[in-house]
């Protein structure tokens, strides 16, 4: 069971309660919640906010592929996963991503949560532009997905 969505931050914020609700079930004894938030420093520069850009259709496609890979590679059949990624300008402390997973046991829930965030970092077309105190900003270098 998978929920995946790109959230236009101008329209609404990422809703952690909705994520927990989605993965809650009498079948699951373990729920892991991961959120990414905008922090105030990167590479010794003082950050005041981050703009997120995304190729929405490819984001959805890549996360569905990650879900399918997680079934094959981790062999966790019964699971619920909720992923939302923000798009637009986020201030310090605001949430850029939520990944909630529900599994039978804690071991597989931790594995699945970690698998998702690491794979998203490597495969999902989202980009960050950091805005620094002062007026400058820069796109982060990122990881090439050229094959």
């Amino acid at each position: 069971m998978l929920h995946v969505k790109v959230i236009e931050i101008k329209k609404r914020k990422i809703d952690v309660q909705k994520a927990i609700q989605y993965v809650s079930s009498p079948y699951f004894g373990a729920i892991i919640l991961f959120t990414g938030t905008v922090r105030n420093e990167n590479n010794k520069k003082k950050v005041k906010g981050v703009s997120y850009d995304s190729h929405d259709k490819l984001v959805i496609k890549s996360i569905k592929e990650i879900y399918s890979d997680s079934t094959k590679k981790l062999n966790i059949k019964k699971k619920a996963i909720f992923v939302e990624h923000a798009k637009g300008y986020l201030k310090l402390g605001e949430k850029s991503i939520v990944i909630a997973v529900g599994c039978k046991h804690r071991g597989e829930a931790y594995k699945l949560s970690r698998f998702f965030i690491e794979q998203i970092k490597k495969r999902t077309p989202v980009w960050k532009k950091e805005h620094y105190i002062g007026s400058n900003s820069s796109w982060l270098k990122g990881v090439s997905i050229k094959k």
Partner: peptide, 26 residues
């Protein structure tokens, strides 16, 4: 159609293509 195109892929008609620079979300 959201398919990644390799270096030798031949484009045969006018169309939209997305450039996907190095990524870094989360």
């Amino acid at each position: 159609k959201d398919i990644f195109l390799n270096e030798n892929y031949k484009i045969i008609r006018s169309q939209k293509i997305s450039i996907i620079p190095p990524i870094g979300g989360g």
